[in-house]
Every structure is written in structure tokens, then in C-alpha cells.
Design a protein around this nucleic acid. Structure first.
Lengths: 126, 126
DNA sequence: ATCCAATTTTAGATGTATTCTAAAGGCATG
DNA sequence: CATGCCTTTAGAATACATCTAAAATTGGAT
């Protein structure tokens, strides 16, 4: 565990915005200015392999999620914001059977417009 | 509607494997050898804008899905295969409320090991 | 059939995200 | 202090996607 790795883990643990690798790089670099992108990518991939973070893909970007409990996501179609859903309804979902495949997990992705974007739109119109 | 565009649309309509842009390019090129990647990307993006195809992102690749009915996906964690789920259970899902956001759609992603990969594994072991 | 304007296609350059590589650095152990 | 192992660094290399400008094609008017 090096200072760079600790900074990367801290960055993920402190945020709820599902940062991209580049956003993690920018945050870590503000504290350790010489950290290279390769270190950020290496560390993130190590965390992925160790199942200590998850990945959410959207609009061509891989976003990293330190929440490894099974959960779901809301994605704003305007600003791209990704938010964890901690709804009791998530548990109503039992594993579907799919053909002859072995099902291991299920995840719901909810899409729509986030409250912030709706407010921005209302102000712009009025 | 040009021959190139028709070939791209035909390719998508004929397949159930959710091809990537590059796979579409390879297929179209086998019939129209001089078709460029740009034409494939342009046409796919036109189809996306017109909501005539959907996109499924997985493992850093954008896969194109001509099925525009709301539906769900099974993704194999070994080979990356994406399969549509046409399960009656999909309809039991009612739109969740998520904070103050406006929910427009919900999609389930089921992950696991596909039948083909399981068979391959069993043969490899025995 | 010919011309023209508008659109599409092409090849290659460019952009963006990610991974690879080789050299340098750090740290524990002998 | 030397050694070996692992990490970090900077930049090159790769992969996927988009952009650009010129050439080709289309459909409509003559």
C-alpha cells in the first residue's frame, strides 16, 4: 500500500459521483502532483480484480463505484450523472431464469432526467 | 437510402448477436468491399438518433441492438455474449421512484455464464 | 440526356480513453 | 551496502470513435 494507492482508494471512498479514471487521476494529482495515469489505471484494475470496486459503463466512459453491495443505478440522460439506488423495491427482484445460462447477478439501470437538470430546464424556460 | 446504408440496416436486422460497429463494418465490407468505417459509424449514429436501434455497452464496447422494444439483456461474463431476454417476468417491473428524478425507462442486466461457455468448461475439465 | 445543388461516401487525420513498455525508484532483507 | 522484488513514471502504443475535406452519387429541373 503506497501513498498513491491510498490516495486513489481514499478518493473513491470519499465520493458518491462514480468518477471516471481521469477524474480519479485529477483528484489524486491535486495531492500527489507527480502521479501518473498508469498508476491510477493499474490501481483501479487491481481494485476491480479484487472485487473492491465495481464499474458502470455509460456513454463510452467507465465509471468506478466503491459500493460493492448489490445495488442499482439511476443515470441522467442529460448530464450523465450516475446515482446509486438504495430502494427497498430492489429486493423484490428475484433472479430470473434465462435459457440454459447460469445467472449470477441482476442489476437494474433506471434512466431519466435528474432533479438538477429538470430545475435547470425550468429556469431556462421561465 | 444508399446501398451501404441498406447493407448496414440488413446486417443489424439479420443478426441477434448485438454486433459492435467494427463487426458491422466487417460484415458490410464482405459485400461492399470499399465501404469505410466512417460510413458505418455515421449510419449507426443516424439510426441511433432516429431511435431505430439501441446501444448496449459492455467491456468498453458499444454493441448495437435492432430490437427497440423495451427488453432486457443477459451478458456472459466469460465470452461477453449479449442476448435479449424476452421473459414474461420483465413486465412485472413497474417504474421505481428515484428521489426527485423523472424516470423514463428501466432495464435489467442479467450477468452469468452462458450455456456455451458452461459446456466448454465441462468438456475442458473432463 | 445534361446540369446543378444537396447529400453521402471515402481515406486518412485526429481525438479520446486505455494499456503497454522500459527505465528509474523504493523498500525490505541478507 | 548490495540484492531482488515490486511500484511508479513518462511516454509510446493501441483501440475505438469521430472529424475533415475532397470525390462521388443522388434526384430534380431543364
Amino acid at each position: 500500500m503506497t501513498p498513491q494507492r491510498r490516495a486513489i482508494v481514499d478518493c473513491l471512498a470519499a465520493t458518491r459521483v462514480h468518477p471516471t479514471a481521469d477524474e480519479v487521476f485529477a483528484d489524486v494529482n491535486s495531492r500527489f502532483p507527480m502521479t501518473s495515469r498508469a498508476t491510477v489505471y493499474n490501481t483501479l484494475n487491481l481494485l476491480l480484480d479484487a472485487h473492491l470496486v465495481n464499474i458502470v459503463e455509460e456513454a463510452g466512459l467507465k465509471r468506478f463505484d466503491p459500493n460493492i453491495e448489490p445495488h442499482h443505478h439511476f443515470i441522467c440522460s442529460i448530464c450523465g450523472m450516475v446515482e446509486d439506488i438504495e430502494s427497498p423495491e430492489k429486493d423484490q427482484l428475484t433472479l430470473l431464469n434465462v435459457g440454459n445460462h447460469v445467472v449470477e447477478s441482476m442489476q437494474i439501470t433506471v434512466r431519466g432526467k435528474c432533479a438538477a437538470c429538470i430545475n435547470r430546464g425550468i429556469r431556462a424556460d421561465g
